[in-house]
Design a protein around this nucleic acid. Sequence first.
RNA 1: GGGCGUGUGGCCUAGCGGACAGGGCGAGAGGUUCCUAACCUCUCGAUCGCGGGUUCGAAUCCCGCCACGCCCGCCA
Length: 584
Amino acid sequence: MFLTFRAAVEAAVEDALTALDLPADDLGVERPPEDVDAVLASSVAFRLAGETGAPPPAVAERVADAVDPAVHEYLDRVDTQGPYVNFHPTPRYLSDTVEAALDGDWGRLPDRGESVVVEHTSANPTGPVHIGRARNPIVGDAVARILGFAGYDVETHYYVNDAGRQVAILTWAYETFDEAELPEAEREKRDHELVRYYRRGTTVLEEGDPEAVEAAESAIAAVMQGLEEGDPETEERVEAVVEPMLEGMSASLERLPAAFDRRVHETEFMPAETRDATARLRALDEAVYDEEAWQLDLADFGIEKRLVFQRSDGTSLYPTRDIAHHQWKLDEYDHAVTVLGEDHRLQADSVRAALELLGHDTDPLDQVIYSYVDMPEGKMSTRAGTGVDLDDLLDEAVERAREEVEDRAGDRIREDDLSPEDVDRIARQVGVGAVRFDVVAKQPTKAITFEWERALNFEAQSAPYVQYVHARTCGVLERARSEDSTVSSSVDPTALSAPEERDLVRAVARFPAVVKAAAEDRTPHVVATYAREFAETFNAFYRSCPVLSADEEVRAARLALVAAARETVGNALSLLGVEAPESM
RNA sequence: GGGCGUGUGGCCUAGCGGACAGGGCGAGAGGUUCCUAACCUCUCGAUCGCGGGUUCGAAUCCCGCCACGCCCGCCA
């Protein structure tokens, strides 16, 4: 509804300017501050003041006079406040908004008939997921949900680096060391068990005596060569350790929840596609053979660092395989979004440049960059075993949420008691939701230093604040149902006259525009910001507008509005991957 | 050294060319015979890193500087 209204306002301003014979290249349509009672405003008058020789307020008057509200949908009237032209919607804007929101799937944008692959997380299968990288699945999952809701045909991929040196080390270590000589696993989970081999392996490589290191290096090299050639036996050996590791990691990710439509393995592009890409790269004018390795000169793309794409021993590197991988993505999908840490940026830019050189249009490629989460003491590392595991964070979050639920159970006003199952459910929804919301609500490029107290703060501006609004809407609707009231699918707009009612409807109306912006810019945090503002608006309404005790007509309208609000806040939470509790 | 990113009250954060820079945490004062108080109201608190510039107008754009992070591997 907001989108329709905005289009109408833009058309109205443009028509008015044209009629006044003024330039209409910048309409200055924007959202006014909260205390101004208009849905949209225009600041064109500032820009036209010089043009017309009149002061901005006078220009604003003229523009406002030139608008004919009758010919624009939902446009009721236009007035001015100083230099600003303000636009007010018709009562139908309110009723149509509520009715549309009740129609189901509120906020979903029409099908675009375009596919998009969202690749995220893609953590190396070397150990348990720690929270240094936890932004990736949380942001990536939200981006995928938002794009899907915005009308794209979305597929999510976890790209498995199963052909690199790291997994070769893991494979060699797994086959070499005896479990009896390793420390006990931190959890009875395959990823925790297997990471012990990886850690022991890297320790030997770093601190072992020269002979041992040499033997290890040759064993590792043999694994990499085998993979390069597509040797089935080597692939089997690697798979034997990579797959259980991934199962363990996935189990943690699913708690967020972050699930994937498919895992795409590097080895799927070996040897054929990688060899083909290597050959085509070597044929380029920008290809340089230096110190027995093949490299790509990307100076024309502003990248000083040469991209090495074939080692002196003839094997490929991660970027080489990623080029083959991305050629496939470009062939299969209309758009490809990759969520990756800031340290991979140069890498990704280089791959993109190489794809351009190979003749691909890389416009469909898009990156969402996030900054790693550090500990107060410094970086987290799988190898060193420093940092906090995602499982530990989620366990702690749920545990603290449970304490909250139990504390609050005592002074509940409502007489219905929570069953043990309810307590479990709420603790999980609130605990996991708080972690997710805390991460997804921030711009991903901002650095985060992990602190327990801050990450697990359930106070205002966190997930529970928004979830609580959803629970409240459910509570009202449930009560109404028990009194045999049904939510009417049509609304009398004149019954919604209180400012808190109007504000809430207007907030509902904006939701599709928020989805659109978040999808276009790949910025899930704007949905979180909206959800928080929406919750605030709802709470203002809830405070001053009793629903069930209101007179019949007002009651019907408010009940419909509550149902619309539930749909809105529920869908917003779902886009963020945060559960919407029906009670809490 | 070069490239990229970030810098908003004690702390976290939104805004990224227009109406007095919004929230939250924290500190303090209130609010529940009424649909869930994980709520609400009020008070305290900001040279929007620093300095220039562009503009009628700059937290927002440009230039310079400073601080922090990331990258500059035949690792991924």
